[in-house]
Design a protein around this nucleic acid. Structure first.
Lengths: 124, 124
DNA sequence: CGGTATCCTCGGGGATACTG
DNA sequence: CAGTATCCCCGAGGATACCG
């Protein structure tokens, strides 16, 4: 099952997979998608859960996600107007690859951090 | 198994998964890893297979991959000195998440491209 | 509280030319 | 052929202030 990632796709030639890479390229993109995993959230809630992301950058990230159709913006005309963001079909589909990355992190992240530190100490 | 991506991890709080995101953040990083899937390659071969990547940027990408311990550089002291790059353990492990992204692309890429085009036409 | 508008900085990506 | 050194550009990320 984890045998052949290319499996007949043209990864390289007219590489469509780059689309996915570009989609997740933002610093906070993947984190936002993961944060929306268990249901719609208001921007403020997102900020609190993520932590360390500036107000402007978060909205910027959400704008891009919205533009790419990965996240939907929902406005409620209430007493204090409320806004929520939720995953779309494609956005929800990205949770699986993201989970795969999370699994990888558990196993190999320390090795990477060690390698980086080693490189820092020597040449760098 | 593909049920709960978060599955008890702290995706958000002290988000270690960001490590993986950052590793793949480069424009060509993921492509290079995928290209090395079926064995070591020389830089020239890599360039040919990928296409559209400049000489300097490719070496820059390889440097980063090397520094992060995802790719190993192998030098052969031969008549015309030869150089090859190959995946390390952690690097090879990333092929699975990358494959997951490729699968996602097959299903949802068109929808994303459509959404982007739609956004372009209207507001921009 | 959500969103936008400035302004600044930094690093990646690209083209080019040059050294082993 | 592999690698490095410049130089330029642009966009993302961040801080701040201001408008619905």
């Amino acid at each position: 099952m984890s045998g052949d990632p290319t499996h007949g796709h043209d990864f390289i030639a007219d590489c469509r997979t780059r689309i996915a890479f570009d989609l997740l390229s933002g610093t906070w993109t993947g984190v936002v998608l993961a944060a929306l995993h268990d249901g719609p959230l208001r921007p403020g809630e997102l900020r609190d859960r993520i932590g360390g992301v500036s107000h402007k950058v978060l909205t910027g990230t959400l704008r891009r996600l919205e533009r790419d159709g990965l996240v939907a913006r929902r406005r409620y005309a209430e007493a204090p107007p409320r806004v929520e963001y939720e995953l779309t079909g494609p956005g929800r589909g990205l949770l699986e690859p993201i989970a795969a990355l999370a699994r990888w992190t558990e196993v190999h992240a320390d090795a990477v951090l060690a390698a980086q530190e080693r490189a820092e100490l020597s040449g760098r």
